[in-house]
Design a protein around this nucleic acid. Sequence first.
DNA 1: CCACCTTTTGACAGTTACTCTCATTTCATG
DNA 2: CATGAAATGAGAGTAACTGTCAAAAGGTGG
Lengths: 212, 212
Amino acid sequence: MTPMTAARTSIPADRPQLGLRERKKIKTRTAIRDATYRLIEEQGYDATTIEQIAELAEVSPSTVFRYFPTKEDIVLTDEYDPLLEAELRARPEDEPPMDSLRYVLGKAVVVGMAEDAEVTRLRTRLMAEVPAVRSRMMESMSVTSHLLCQVIGERTGRGPDSFEVRVFAMSLIGGLMEVSLYWAQHDHEDDFAELVDRALDVLEHGLTPRAE
Amino acid sequence: MTPMTAARTSIPADRPQLGLRERKKIKTRTAIRDATYRLIEEQGYDATTIEQIAELAEVSPSTVFRYFPTKEDIVLTDEYDPLLEAELRARPEDEPPMDSLRYVLGKAVVVGMAEDAEVTRLRTRLMAEVPAVRSRMMESMSVTSHLLCQVIGERTGRGPDSFEVRVFAMSLIGGLMEVSLYWAQHDHEDDFAELVDRALDVLEHGLTPRAE
DNA sequence: CCACCTTTTGACAGTTACTCTCATTTCATG
DNA sequence: CATGAAATGAGAGTAACTGTCAAAAGGTGG
């Protein structure tokens, strides 16, 4: 039906020879996610129960919970973190952290949007509308924050548990969170990449005294 | 028992003449909160059920839910927001927003710690340890963020829905969140007020190139 | 192709946070 | 004290999880 129904395989059958078992697992995972997205679009987040998801995905409720710890995770989980880390580490050692971040995040946005813009929009919409989803997103972003701490901590010579680095990373996360919210609340009319860029300006220089 | 058991009345019987009904409501509210703190200290957050809380507070479970929408709210809810707003607005018009924030937050920390340091520590500890509490805290802080947007939006001449202001406010919230986490994870050994101050430095100037 | 072991699955029972409804009790007021 | 409004408690119901155990499916050596 929607473009979402297909193409939810960011992790394609990595290597053709993968064993029936592994392939089935991936299929189940995406089946659950697809079912979830479809049901949520039709009837909303709260009205969608795990039982319905299980039925549509043709698995048992137990299996749903085996694949995703919480309902919110079905919507949100994605493994961009390792990519993010790799990209960050690939930046030249002497590049100022802020520039590295700007580059990497910019790239991440492009990739994310290219992969499935529809899903990205649904996700941010749910983040804005469903508190539980927003909370879960914050949690998962704070994991990303720790990852940032590692890299930035190394690059700046402070440790990964440096107070300043941690505060910086988390405030970055907060800022990016708000970018998504703003974008969704304005009906995804702005250019997401540009918003991220402007947000980074704020993070870098603080709130400049005069507008424009 | 603990110093917590008493003195949970940040809102004292505002005016002596308040009607038995209102006074009882306040008592019930604090009874529920006290019971919750006590049970959590004894047996941990997850192991503490609403039923137990209700029993110890000598009300029915229904009543607990009438006073607090979620279990996390029993631990966290506190109405500092109006005070915060008032204090912020009381700052001179021409003071740079960052300076106003520094002053107001500094004061808030002092007041919060003076009121009941024990509870403050328990709360931050729970924030660090219990994901659900942390999430709820984030939610409630994002409410505070909106409030900040109002004031800062006015002061800086941009509207309260200015993208830059929103990003700034939310990144501030994220940063402060991390302050609390850091503080709790380091066993509350640092001076909280000083940590807040250092966090604001990061927010104001970004991550400066060299440590110290 | 078959036996054997491991992983995955489904069925089921149980817990708990939270919602809704309705009758009862408790306070406020004339 | 009578009357209305607000607060409470009791109880039934929902849905997200958790844990257990037996059956089924996939992989492997003969």
